[in-house]
C-alpha cells in the first residue's frame, strides 16, 4: 500500500543548551524549544502550525529540514527516516523540501540579480544542462509567481515587499520540491498585499501538487489556508484538528482562549462576542511549568495538571488534544 503521509514527525525534541561565562563556558540549563512533538502531513495537504512567539514553531520547521539537528525523535519523509543522514543524502533531500521565510528583505542577497538568486539552486543541484535552459527555467518560475521575465535583471531593492516574497517563492520552487515549509510568509506584508501572496501560495499548491507546513501566528490566515491545524504552546502540541473542527469545537483551554482572542472584522458580532482573557504571559521555556505547561494560565486547571504531563490523544475522529480534562 502506498504511504499517504508525506511527512511523519515522531517524538521530536530540539533542546538548546544555555551557557554562562565568557572564558569557561558552563552549561547552566537548556531551552526545550520543541519537546516531544508528533504529527503527520498527508501528501497534498496544508498543515497549519500556530502558537505564540517562542512556542517552537520555527525550530520545529528547521528540525524537519535538518537545519537544526533534532536532539531526539524521528523525521520520516516518504516512509524513510531522514534524521542523521550522510551529508550527500542530506543534500539530495534539500531538493525535496524547501522553506519560505517571513522576512522577504533579509532573505535575498542584495548584491545578486533576481535571475541569479533563482538559478542558484538550479546550478547547485545540476537541474539544468546549460545556460539557455537555466534562463528558460528562471523565466518560467518568474511567470509562475506573477512576475515578469524581464525582472530577472533587477536587484532585490528594486522590488516591494510583496514582490520580494514572490521571488522567495520562485527560488523555493526552482528545485521542484514536494514539501514547502512556509514560516510566516505573509506576516511582514500589508493587508492588501497579503491576500495576493496567500492566493499565489494556494494556486501553486494546486498546480504543482505541493504539501505545506504553514507556520503563522495570524489565526485567521492559518485557518484560511490550512486543511488541518496544529496548536503549539511552549514546545508542546496541545491540539490538532481539521480547520473547521478546531474553530467550531476547540477542546483545549488554550486553543479556546487563543481563538476567542482574535477579533473578527465585524463590529456587530464583536459587540456581543465574549473574549477569554488569559492571565499572565507565556512562561520562560528555560523553566517551563511542571505537569501541563499551560496550567499556570489555564482557567480550568485542576490539581493533577501541575504534576502530570498530559499526552496527545484522539478524543474525536481526527481531533487530538493534550489535556487532563479529556480522559481516554
Amino acid at each position: 500500500m502506498e504511504n499517504k503521509n508525506l511527512l511523519e514527525v515522531e517524538n521530536l525534541r530540539v533542546y538548546f543548551p544555555v551557557h554562562r561565562g565568557t572564558l569557561i563556558k558552563k552549561k547552566v540549563g537548556e531551552v526545550k524549544a520543541v519537546d516531544d512533538v508528533s504529527f503527520k502531513i498527508l501528501k497534498g495537504e496544508t498543515l497549519g502550525l500556530v502558537g505564540e512567539s517562542g512556542s517552537g514553531k520555527t525550530t520545529a520547521g528547521q528540525a524537519i529540514l535538518q537545519i537544526e539537528p533534532p536532539t531526539a525523535g524521528k523525521i520520516i519523509f516518504e516512509g524513510k527516516d531522514i534524521t542523521g543522514l550522510e551529508k550527500n543524502e542530506r543534500r539530495k533531500l534539500r531538493r525535496e523540501m524547501q522553506m519560505i521565510f517571513q522576512d522577504p528583505f533579509s532573505s535575498l542577497n542584495p548584491r545578486m540579480k533576481i535571475g541569479n538568486i533563482i538559478e542558484e539552486p538550479l546550478i547547485a543541484h545540476k537541474l539544468t544542462n546549460n545556460r539557455k535552459e537555466n534562463k528558460e527555467r528562471v523565466e518560467e518560475l518568474l511567470q509562475m509567481v506573477g512576475l515578469m521575465p524581464s525582472m530577472a535583471e533587477r536587484f532585490p531593492h528594486e522590488f516591494s515587499g510583496g514582490q520580494r516574497q514572490r521571488i522567495g517563492i520562485a527560488r523555493a520552487l526552482a528545485v521542484n520540491p514536494k514539501l514547502i515549509i512556509c514560516d510566516e510568509p505573509v506576516s511582514a506584508l500589508d493587508v492588501s498585499i497579503q491576500a495576493q501572496v496567500i492566493n499565489l501560495i494556494e494556486e501553486i499548491q494546486e498546480k504543482l501538487n505541493l504539501t505545506y507546513l504553514f507556520i503563522a501566528h495570524d489565526l485567521a490566515v492559518v485557518r484560511h489556508i490550512s486543511d488541518r491545524i496544529a496548536v503549539m504552546y511552549l514546545g508542546k502540541l496541545v491540539e490538532v484538528a481539521s480547520r473547521i473542527d478546531l474553530y467550531r469545537n476547540p477542546l483545549h483551554p488554550y486553543t479556546k482562549a487563543l481563538l476567542s482572542a482574535v477579533p473578527i472584522p465585524d463590529p456587530r458580532l464583536e459587540a456581543t462576542r465574549e473574549h477569554i482573557v488569559l492571565k499572565g504571559e507565556i512562561p520562560s521555556p528555560m523553566f517551563p511549568p511542571s505537569g501541563c505547561r499551560f496550567h499556570t494560565r489555564c482557567p480550568e486547571a485542576m490539581p493533577e495538571c501541575s504534576s502530570r504531563i498530559p499526552q496527545l490523544k484522539e478524543v474525536d475522529s481526527h481531533h487530538f488534544v493534550s489535556c487532563h480534562l479529556f480522559k481516554d
Binding site: 484560511h224 467550531r248 465585524d266
Partner: peptide, 14 residues
C-alpha cells in the same frame, strides 16, 4: 482579509 467565522473556503480578493 480572511475571516475566522467563515466556514467555507472563500478565495480572497486582493
Amino acid at each position: 482579509v480572511p475571516r475566522m467565522d467563515q466556514d467555507v473556503k472563500q478565495k480572497l480578493i486582493p
